[in-house]
Each structure stands twice: as C-alpha cells, then as structure tokens.
C-alpha cells in the first residue's frame, strides 16, 4: 500500500526530482500511519490482497464483458417505442454466501455497475436489489461474478 501510494504520487507529478520525492515520502509516511491507526491496515492484509491480484484482474475483465452485454440491452430498452410500459421494475432480495464486508461491498458495487440492477441496501447475508425488468433479475440469479468473488474470499 505505501508503495502504491508513492507510485500514484509520482504519476500525478510526472517528473522525478528531489523535492517531489521528499514531499512524497513524508506524505506517504503520514498516510500509512493514519491507515494503520484508523483504517485497519497491516502488512499481513496487504499480502492477502496482493495474492488475489490475478483473480481480481479476471474478475474485472468479466465485469466489463457483462457490462457491455447489459448495456446493449439497456440501449435497446431506451430506444424502444414505449420504455415506461415495457419495463417491470421490482425490488428483490438476493441471498449471498459472502461473509466478509470487503466481499459484500465488491458484490454490491459490481451489481450496481451492471446496467439494469441497483443495490438499494446491503444486509448481513443478503443484498436488496432494484431490477428494471425480468432479464436483469435472471442475470442476477446466475451470475459468474459472484462465484469468482466467493473463490477470492477464501482464506481472507
């Protein structure tokens, strides 16, 4: 995490000089202290997340493909004759076996990113989802994204 923050700082500056590096190191040290004090950061947790980077890249690629498919459906819905009559919005409860809060937040965000479904609230073992029509509800039930998240969550 400190290395990532420092790289971000260098990217924002676009040049490597002494004053940039000194300011960056001081800011990164303060931020790391703050994160370990209030954000629950530790080296062990960093290692756990670093081991999941390959799985996470696969997850993101899968998410982008699903977004494109759902977006085409959404565009067809918007450009259809009577969009207000052809949709059937509903709020459904979707049970999820994800245990950690990080996993549930990732699931909620990926549901919200897919057009057609919005996460309204996150409960202990379920998420409440507003789906715009039947097709969005079906895609929610058999999504490969959740299985990927379950695999990534093991041992966290």
């Amino acid at each position: 995490m400190p290395i990532l923050l420092f790289l971000l700082w260098l990217v924002f500056n676009e040049r490597i000089t002494a004053d940039v590096i000194i300011t960056g190191v001081i800011a990164v040290l303060i931020l790391t202290w703050f994160l370990s004090r209030f954000g629950g950061w530790s080296l062990k947790r960093d290692g756990q997340f670093a081991a999941r980077i390959p799985a996470f890249i696969g997850f993101v690629i899968n998410l982008i493909i699903e977004m494109c498919i759902a977006n085409i459906h959404m565009i067809a819905l918007v450009l259809s004759d009577k969009p207000n009559e052809s949709i059937r919005p509903a709020i459904v409860k979707h049970k999820t076996p994800l245990k950690t809060s990080v996993g549930r937040v990732a699931l909620a965000n990926s549901i919200t990113l897919t057009p057609g479904t919005i996460t309204v609230d996150v409960g202990d073992n379920c998420v409440y989802v507003h789906a715009i029509d039947e097709r969005a509800r079906k895609s929610l039930e058999n999504s490969s994204l959740e299985n990927k998240l379950i695999n990534m969550e093991k041992g966290l």
Binding site: M74, I75, V78, N84, L113, P115, G116, I118, H130, I132
Partner: peptide, 16 residues
Amino acid sequence: FRFRYVLNRIHVAAKC
C-alpha cells in the same frame, strides 16, 4: 428524459 421515475432513471443515467 424518457423514463418517469427516479429509480428507473438512475439505471440509464448513472450506469451507462
């Protein structure tokens, strides 16, 4: 502009 209700509008407005 084509949808009527907030929750339906969010679907297109925010996600697309």
